[in-house]
Design a protein around this nucleic acid. Sequence first.
DNA 1: TCATGTGAAGAGCTTCACAGCA
DNA 2: TGCTGTGAAGCTCTTCACATGA
Lengths: 212, 212
Amino acid sequence: MNKIAPKLVVRRLPIYLHILDNLIRNDVQIISSRELSDETGFTAEQIRKDLAFFGAFGTRGTGYNTSFLREKILKIIGLDDQTNIVVVGAGHLGIALIRYNVTNNSYVNVVAAFDIDPDVIGLKILDVEVMPMARMKEIAEEYKVKVAILTVPSEQAQIAVEQIIQSGINVIFNFAPTKLHVPEGVYVRNANLSIELQSLIYYATSEKEKKF
Amino acid sequence: MNKIAPKLVVRRLPIYLHILDNLIRNDVQIISSRELSDETGFTAEQIRKDLAFFGAFGTRGTGYNTSFLREKILKIIGLDDQTNIVVVGAGHLGIALIRYNVTNNSYVNVVAAFDIDPDVIGLKILDVEVMPMARMKEIAEEYKVKVAILTVPSEQAQIAVEQIIQSGINVIFNFAPTKLHVPEGVYVRNANLSIELQSLIYYATSEKEKKF
DNA sequence: TCATGTGAAGAGCTTCACAGCA
DNA sequence: TGCTGTGAAGCTCTTCACATGA
């Protein structure tokens, strides 16, 4: 394994994982790329190529063993044990993501939230405590946290990023509508919901109504 | 204009729009693709190509007039007047998105939320009322709603989709972790936050720790 | 001179067509 | 036979290099 994995392939792996979990729960032991295609909407060829990038996990003439493939994908992503993350910014969105994540995601666990507002510090969302930013490094080290969800306002985003990086976290899922400046080796994915929403409007409006 | 706009270009337009809004607020009248590159992280060439796809909006040797370019992008996206949307599913995530959107997005306006739970029907989140699903069509027609944010649980997603489509809405921003089946002409964008989060773990784990 | 606009080249991802193997 | 695995072709998007024009 020396080629680097295509970004879009990596983003599809958890989708396959989710389907495999459901299949295994229903005692399905074998699945073909054609059936996975029906479940996902991706083509069977694409699914085979995605998986084949990491190795030959299937059996010709038969398909993929669901449990075996699940284990392989867990290893590839790096989800082999419970992965701990933190939420930075305990506003409405941060709190909603904590509740949402806990109920929807059995692989990733939020260990703490951080905020600068004394009014929210000390609160518990489900069993997740909101702590002052100063405790981030201690928590990150204790729980081996490598990923942070960032939901602070734009103005505070860059300052929060410095603290996140100093805490040893190297992946940021950024919900603040601003560009983050990070050093080499830190990976940022932006999830700017307002901007996504605006781009969707494009597909709601017929071409005829647009003049430019 | 007969070629169809590249999807990735459309997704970047609101990013340019956001920056232009800030520049105009600070009385900046001219911006070059180089400066837009510094603000966005995209290359200057890419920004020029993105904009040039829709027309020649700049002045050679000078740059782009911020107000002029803003107007053009608004027209291209279809944001020429306040765009109304609805939220389907008034759980934690739906409520958080209503609060988040209202405070972050001056172009898009949530006119109503819908849910099946009698306990939340009648609630107001800011000034957005939670209504029974049966009222969706009426509201969609009254406010010319073309876009819905879908935040119901997976099991209810497909049923909700039928109602959304029957209400005349043709674009769905889907937060439910399930594949939606829609007819031709309906555009779905998935924002599965758990799955995005899982794919990020890949970038947090060093290659050395992975064996497959 | 300086920054836009644009063909051409390049990179990345998907689809095709079929070889390979249980 | 049936489904995986994979080079080759095709498509989409990005980068390059420079012609164009204020």
